[in-house]
């Protein structure tokens, strides 16, 4: 047996989902975005929603999410994705509509759009990447930046007396009657990826079943913005992010 006859369909245990195209990703090596993109592609394929899914991309590192998954996409203004998703789902109720947003997009400039879409119980799925930093603009402080965490706009560390506290927006969203799923996951281990996949699948199923708003917060790394190796970033996330943003369901009904 040589490599040529190993690469055959019957030996396939892992593959890039068909929905993902061959465009080179702009994400930094070690970034969580690529893994979450793949999970979303897998789930859309599993559920057979290729022709029914409309994605809403944010402003932030994932602004080009629309380049990697071969579905229809709308690119929103910063923070406005839930407003676009609201109209899209209301006007096309049998479609699966999801937003993909970072912490700056969802928890700072888009707080109002996020909370009110969730409060109305819009039948959309919100995939929320929380890495505690603005990646795209070069590592500035985010609403979710941890206490004492250094960023380019908190060079001496986040002083919570003057810069506010880490915003636990998922906890706020979980209180809203329109929300059916508010859960935190991560993608730093194979087991965590599997859990994220189950939760994103549930969120998409909730959207199609009209159960209300589902939010999957993926606590993520930004090794470039955190100025760490990918492995060190994973360890740092477990040690520092998880105590503030604990993994698990806040609401699942």
């Amino acid at each position: 047996m040589d490599t040529n006859n190993i690469i055959s369909p019957e030996n396939l245990v892992y593959a890039k989902p068909e929905l993902m195209n061959d465009n080179h990703m702009h994400y930094c090596p070690g970034c969580s975005h690529g893994v979450v993109h793949k999970v979303i592609a897998d789930v859309i394929m599993e559920l057979g929603l290729q022709e029914k899914t409309i994605g809403i991309a944010p402003v932030g590192c994932a602004v080009f999410a629309y380049k990697y998954l071969d579905i229809d996409w709308q690119e929103a203004a910063h923070g406005r994705a839930p407003a676009l998703a609201t109209a899209t789902k209301r006007l096309l109720p049998d479609r699966m509509v999801f937003t993909y947003q970072g912490d700056g997009d969802l928890a700072a400039i888009g707080t109002a759009e996020t909370i009110h879409a969730a409060n109305r119980g819009e039948n959309i799925a919100i995939i929320f990447i929380n890495n505690g930093i603005y990646g795209m603009t070069g590592g500035q402080m985010a609403p979710t930046t941890l206490k004492d965490m250094k960023t380019s706009t908190s060079p001496d560390g986040r002083n919570v007396q003057t810069m506010g506290n880490p915003l636990k927006i998922l906890d706020m969203l979980a209180l809203l009657d329109g929300v059916c799923l508010a859960t935190r996951t991560s993608v730093h281990t194979p087991a965590a990826v599997k859990k994220t996949r189950r939760m994103i699948r549930l969120a998409f199923e909730n959207s199609m079943a009209g159960k209300g708003t589902s939010i999957v917060e993926v606590v993520s790394t930004c090794n470039a913005g955190w100025k760490m190796t990918p492995a060190a970033a994973n360890d740092w996330m477990v040690e520092h992010m998880f105590p503030v943003y604990p993994i698990g369901d806040l609401k699942n009904i």
């Binding site: 929103a76 407003a83 676009l84 609201t86 109209a87 899209t88 109002a112």
Partner: peptide, 21 residues
């Protein structure tokens, strides 16, 4: 569909979403 949005900002972005369809 008639919807009272949470702000004028949200309303115009809902128009953006609807128009995109």
């Amino acid at each position: 569909v008639v919807l009272q949005a949470e702000s004028e900002v949200a309303a115009i972005n809902m128009v953006y979403g609807g128009a995109s369809c």
